[in-house]
Structures are given as structure tokens and as C-alpha cells.
Computed example of a mutant assay.
Amino acid sequence: MGGAAPAGVAVLPEGTEAGHRRGPGPGDRFSLGRLLTCDNCDQLLRPSWDLSGERQYIFLCGCRRGGINADVVERLVYQRVEAESVLLVADVAVEALPAVFQGIFAAVRIGHSTEDLMFVWRI
């Protein structure tokens, strides 16, 4: 599962707790760090930051170049969960979203665009 990161991105080393910022900032978490997979090859996307410090998920598999804006894809997933049942995410702290999403989804597959999401539900 290795691979070189695209130019201009910092990758969390294997074994690093996904979700903790590796630079200055408030410690943003990646709520899809162990769920977001490439629809083409099933490889997990890697949480990362671009050179400006923006959170993103990157395709180490090479199926797609460039990163996926983490805020955008996480908001889309949150909205999908909320559309199913507001109770699933009501009063959930941002820090708790990774555990909530892992309990709800077996995987979140992403295709060629950020909006091209497929959900594999556990429930």
C-alpha cells in the first residue's frame, strides 16, 4: 500500500494517528481517515495537507492526481448522514465524528469528482 505522494503534499507517516495536524494549527481531525477509498482500486486515501496548510485526502494509488479537499468531502458525508437521520449526528462534537462515521460506514468510496461518493453502510 505504499507510493510516493504527489508533489507539494505532506503525507502522514504510516502508523501516525490519522487526524492530528503535523504542523501549526488547532489539531484538525480527518473524520474519514480510515474510510475514504478510491472507487477504482479500493485503496484508502491518505490524510494530508497541501503546502498552504489546507487539509486534503490524496490518492497514493495514482488513479487520480491531486488531493480532495477534506472540508468539502467531509461536509458532503456529514450532510448525507444528517439526511438519513438527524439523530445520528445531533450534538456530536467534531472530534467524535471519526468514531461516528466508522460506526455508520464500512467505507466511503470516491470516484472522479468530490461529489461522486458511494456509501457502504454498516447499518
Score class of each variant (00 low, 15 high):
3 G>H: 12
4 A>T: 11
5 A>W: 00
6 P>F: 06
11 V>G: 09
11 V>I: 13
11 V>R: 09
15 G>T: 01
16 T>C: 11
19 G>N: 07
19 G>H: 12
24 P>Y: 11
24 P>Q: 15
26 P>W: 02
28 D>Q: 13
28 D>S: 14
28 D>F: 04
29 R>N: 09
31 S>G: 14
31 S>M: 10
33 G>K: 08
34 R>E: 12
34 R>K: 15
35 L>A: 14
35 L>V: 04
36 L>P: 00
37 T>R: 05
38 C>E: 02
42 D>T: 09
44 L>N: 06
49 W>S: 15
50 D>R: 07
50 D>S: 06
52 S>W: 08
53 G>W: 00
54 E>N: 15
54 E>M: 06
57 Y>C: 01
63 C>D: 07
66 G>A: 15
68 I>Q: 12
71 D>Q: 04
72 V>Y: 13
74 E>Y: 11
77 V>Y: 04
78 Y>L: 11
80 R>N: 10
83 A>K: 10
85 S>H: 13
87 L>N: 11
87 L>I: 08
88 L>I: 00
89 V>G: 03
91 D>H: 07
97 L>G: 04
98 P>A: 01
100 V>Q: 03
100 V>S: 08
102 Q>S: 15
111 G>V: 07
111 G>T: 02
112 H>P: 06
113 S>C: 07
116 D>L: 10
